[in-house]
Amino acid sequence: MDVLNVITLLGNFLIVPGLTYGSQLALGALGVTLVYGVLRFSNFAHGETMAFGAMITILVTWLLQASEISIQPLPTALLAMPVGIAVTVLFTLGMDRLVYRYHRERKASPVIFLIVSIGVMFFMGGLIRFIIGPGDQIFFDGTRFILKAREFKETTGLNEGLSLKMTQAVTIVTAIVIVALLFWFLNHTRTGKSMRAYSDNENLALLSGINPNKVVLITWVLVAALATVAGTLYGLDKSFKPFVYMQLLLPIFASAIVGGVGNPLGAIAGGYIIAFSELILTFAYKRVVLYLAPEGTEIDSLVQFLGTDYKIAVSFIILVIVLIIRPTGLFRGKTL
C-alpha cells in the first residue's frame, strides 16, 4: 500500500509534470536543432518564434471562442493551431527572405548569423508585445481535468491522488504525434532525406542535385511549425506571457546541447533530461520518506536536493557542465 502511495505521489508530482514539461522542451529543442543542423547557427530568436506562433494561435482561438466554435472537451486552441502554424511559417519565410538569405548568400560565419538572430529576436519581441501586449493571456478552455485527484483517491482507496490535466495529456499526445511525424518525414521521405543529406555534407548534397533553397525552405517550415506547437502547448499548460518565452530559450538550448545539437533524437532526449533533472533535484521527498520509513518516524526537513527556487538554475548548470565536459552532447550531434 505504501509503495503504491509512493508511486502515485511520484507519478503525480514528478512523472506527469516531467513528461509534460519535457515534451515542451523537446519540441522547442527540435526547432533549435533543425536550424543548427541545416542552417548551421544557434538561433537566439527561437523563443520569440514560439511566442509568435502561440500569439497567432491565441488570436485565432479568441476569434473562434467569440463565434462559439469549440471542440469540447478539447481546448479550442488545438483547432486554432493550424492557422497559427500557417501564419508563423509565412512570417518565418519572410524573415528568411528579408534577413537571413542575404547573409547565407555571402556565406557569413555562424557568429554573424547568431548576431542576426539576436536582431530578429529584438524585432519579434517588440512585434509580439505590440500586437498582444506584455501581459498574461489565458486562452485555455474545455475540460480542465481528465483525472481528478479526489476521484482517483476514492476509486483506489489510496492516500495519494493522481491527477491528469487536460493540458498535460494534450501536450504529451501532441508531442508524440508531432515527433513521430517529423521522424517519419526525415527518415522515409525523399525531401526529408535530402534535408539530412544537406545537413550531413552540404557540398555533396549540391553535387547530387539537391536544391539548397528548397532544403532551407522546408527547414524553416518545420521550425515554424514546431515552434508554434511548442509555444502553444506551453502557453496552454502554464500561461502565455511573451517574457516567459525569452526565458525558455536557455532551457531549450540546454536540451538541444545536452542531447547533441543538430541531432533530433538528442533534442528529444535532452528535453526530458532537463525537465526531469529540474523536477527530481527540487522535489521535496519528505512524504516519500515518510511512507517508506517505519511508522512514527518524524522528519522536519523537506528532504530536497535543492530548494524549489533553484529549478531554472538546474538547466543552466547542466548546460554549462555539458558544454565544458562534452560539448558534442550525449548523441554526438552535428547532423540531422
Partner: peptide, 25 residues
C-alpha cells in the same frame, strides 16, 4: 558524375540512402 577526393559520402546516412541521394535528380 563526380566523386570528390574527400567527404564523398553522407556519413550519417545508410549505404542505401547514399545511393538514393545519388539518384536525387
Amino acid at each position: 558524375g563526380f566523386v570528390p577526393q574527400t567527404h564523398n559520402v553522407f556519413t550519417s546516412m545508410s549505404v542505401e540512402e547514399n545511393l538514393e541521394m545519388g539518384a536525387f535528380i
